[in-house]
Design a protein around this nucleic acid. Sequence first.
DNA 1: ATCATAGTCGTCTTCCTGACGATAAACACT
DNA 2: AGTGTTTATCGTCAGGAAGACGACTATGAT
Lengths: 252, 252
Amino acid sequence: MPYDPSAFPPFAVTVDLVVLTVRRHALCALAVRRGESPFQGRWALPGGFVRADEDLSQAAARELAEETGLRAHEPSAPAQDYGAHLEQLATYGDPKRDPRMRVVSVAHLALAPDLPAPRAGGDASNARWAPVEELLQQGGYGRDGEPVTPLAFDHAQILADGVERARSKIEYSSLATAFCPTEFTVGELRRVYEAVWGVALDPRNFHRKVTGTPGFLVPTGGTTTRQGGRPAQLFRAGGATLLNPPMLRPEV
Amino acid sequence: MPYDPSAFPPFAVTVDLVVLTVRRHALCALAVRRGESPFQGRWALPGGFVRADEDLSQAAARELAEETGLRAHEPSAPAQDYGAHLEQLATYGDPKRDPRMRVVSVAHLALAPDLPAPRAGGDASNARWAPVEELLQQGGYGRDGEPVTPLAFDHAQILADGVERARSKIEYSSLATAFCPTEFTVGELRRVYEAVWGVALDPRNFHRKVTGTPGFLVPTGGTTTRQGGRPAQLFRAGGATLLNPPMLRPEV
DNA sequence: ATCATAGTCGTCTTCCTGACGATAAACACT
DNA sequence: AGTGTTTATCGTCAGGAAGACGACTATGAT
């Protein structure tokens, strides 16, 4: 049977990105301001159309680089290339999610260390890191006094799913190190967990756990006092990607 | 800016289904024989085009019903409607995954109790339950002596991802009960875990674990001897969906 | 010198698991 | 009826991991 284009309806396929980082003890996501209708002027997740010859992960990596300059760092990559962790999150295809046309969006989740100010096509005022609570809250006012508007399209749902993925995934994997620079201390890693989960962890038990898990952390020999207090050992992420037993998220 | 169809390439969007069940102590997946080119005559996962007015989960539920007669039972559903668990798995969009055109497939994972013989458009010879090891193995001969051919398209990868999702998800959720009939015994549930993980579990420790986890199992009061031996209590799945602490998969 | 801050090492109790003994209640034989 | 087989269920014990928390160390700030 020959190829019959009338046998299926045409779709537009996009990738949307949930780019998370930890800034000032808060889990933040990258948001860009929409320049076009619909939702003109509203904040949205970065994203764009998948090109005709591109794989989905390639499209996501390209968008990530365009928005942040980060090189993607997929699970199968050779590792320790400076860049962000990138993985597919979920796909959203409600027929009414975009009023213009039928769009299916393959959302991806990126985890990045704290970065310099974002750029969106070179225009800084149209991109920002915002705490996820602020982006997800309904109404009210943000910390800068600006009224909070919900994210465009179904991006609040996508962001919520991405945050939940990140929260659960750092439990049983070493992914929390993706939020840290190449070299980091146990305390810095602990603050990542605290920011992502929104809880306080016992520094002593956390230290015992992460240093006692083989392959999680590799000491580099150096120390730093950049957090103040007693000098802390510096570590690099070890080869282990699965944590067993997992880091336990405290009950709420 | 008006809607400009030339701004993006058109895609076909399909759903493919990884339907898993446990039959005769083995984890099995539903496979259908392709009637058309490409891969004519080869086994593939069931699936089809998403319709113009359909959400992705609706399309997956429709395909599932067409292939198996099962009603889908999404995580948010009112529960205890007889049917299968259905969730989105991942999306596959390699530009070359279908030689005819650009197809993005949103794979879904369905978990079903042991069913009567499958039907594929009413034609039984074109659908079957096959052990996942057989569908995933490269070359050789199946248990019926027929030579093993790889699944069509990238369906081997999709199936492998679905199996891995199921294997990991029954660790920390009560999803294993989706493989059981409405009422089941602890031993039957244990055989599900053993089949999915491919390991042997200690019946006494398993019994302690599942009966000791609040909300996992609800006794119905009845007993059965359908497995032989001493009569076993019958249970129904409880309301708890998250297992904490999780069921531990033995190291390999 | 004193204090505040962070990091690191120990201790103790509690909970969970894995290994495994023992008993119970059915069925299939002889 | 008795014996063996199968499956279910209860109990015990040792080892490991985690939560709570005391104590000490090494820096910079005042």
